[in-house]
Write a protein that binds this DNA or RNA. Structure first.
Lengths: 237, 237
DNA sequence: TAGATTGTTAATCGATTAACAATC
DNA sequence: TAGATTGTTAATCGATTAACAATC
């Protein structure tokens, strides 16, 4: 049996090989067997963007303190967040900006292009589509939009083709859509989510003020502008 | 001295009088001297909306379990959240839907109309403005929009007048703006925030992917769509 | 009264921050 | 080597959930 021949070095090697492996178990999504808190993922994306800016202005290396300061975060938090995924820094020196950014992008999965569909070409849908240039820089691309209004079908906005919502299922498969952004009128969100899930989508960005019922392997991120505004009201003097 | 004459009943009375008093101390914003976690405020707003729906469908009373289920929350959490602000339920019965909703609205400050300005009438700004009908139902009103583009000035969208951004300061004061939503292009956010703060605004909803520097008494809520999308990418298979 | 559900305390869980040996 | 900063463990802080006496 091969197992008997494995020496210390080989064990280390094989542990390197599984590096970067995401899997789902009873504790939710894990990375190399460790459960990653959701806030960590959000911050990872913030780090990537900040690093992009630093890189753009010619900064080549950066400490956890500098990166944290740029985002209003504690330096220990920066180091701890990164430590979930490996060792990326050099003691005494800090992190190499471009290298770290690349590593984070690869962890997030945005080192390749992530393909999005926007469902609902109302004002919010259009706002998303009009942001595509910014999004493209960060690694995701809106490749299709869907609407129920026949007058909008067939055209395009910002280079994004608009299809009829009836085509959602087959287009999701054909176009290899990764993420569906739901920006339809209130009440129509669940139906869209159902079709997306049917077609194999596992990540949904939901702007409709409704809770979506989805299987446990599907991740839904809620963005609820009315809730954001109302919460702010509490903090008024 | 009056204090010497205060009896037990009067002490109870006076503690009722301070009920609902918000103040700021070293620990941040407090309600009747207790520090309220931010997630609680978000959920309060969610409760209010759910209760509105229940009320609309004729439901008159509701248990913490039923309210929690509607939002995917634990019933203990519902009760604990409410307990920060007082005793609103009836043991054995639950909560009266309309009464609870009124109490929550009053805690949030959305029992009166909260006045919003949208700065930046791009696609996102327009999306916000086009939602005003929904927002109006929940207690806030977009009363003005601002843009730098002279061609947009003077007109209106959805009944909301569009002013030049140079008028921001005096309009905020004249129109008693409570909250400023910043939806300008990347790079212009801080300047808008500065003027808003100058004019006395204490709550900002920021859609620009930049950290805003504001005095500590000003609350900034960040909505960053690119970060939301990129975080979702991590959860793709 | 019996049953149900609150309000609240205690227990658990999770996330942030501090501290420091290891390392460049 | 001296100085700086990482990676990681332990301490703290905060938020959620369980449990249950009090109450309708």
């Amino acid at each position: 049996m091969i197992g008997l021949l494995v020496n210390q070095t080989e064990v280390l090697e094989s542990s390197k090989i599984i590096r970067g492996h995401k899997s789902v178990d009873g504790r939710g999504l894990t990375y190399e067997g460790r459960r990653i808190p959701k806030p960590v993922i959000k911050r990872l994306s913030m780090y990537a963007r900040a690093l992009q800016k630093f890189s753009f202005t010619g900064v080549e290396k950066i400490s956890s303190r500098e990166l944290g300061d740029a985002l209003g975060l504690n330096s220990a938090q920066v180091r701890k967040d990164l430590a979930y995924f490996g060792q990326f820094g050099v003691p005494g020196l800090g992190y190499y900006v471009e290298e770290l950014r690349g590593r984070i992008k690869s962890i997030l999965g945005t080192d390749r292009v992530v393909r999005l569909a926007v469902v609902g070409v109302g004002n919010l849908g259009q706002a998303l589509i009009s942001n595509s240039t910014q999004y493209a820089r960060e690694g995701f691309c809106i490749v299709a939009a869907f609407d129920a209004d026949k007058r909008k079908i067939g055209g395009e906005r910002n280079g994004v083709p608009i299809y009829h919502i009836g085509d959602l299922n087959h287009r999701i498969k054909d176009m290899a859509i990764d993420i569906v952004a739901v920006a339809v009128p209130s009440g129509a969100g669940q139906a869209v989510a159902d079709r997306a899930v049917e077609s194999g989508v596992t990540a949904i960005l939901n702007f409709v003020p409704e809770r979506l019922i989805v299987p446990s392997h599907v991740h839904v991120q809620y963005v609820d502008l009315a809730i954001e505004i109302e919460s702010l009201s509490y903090y008024l003097k």
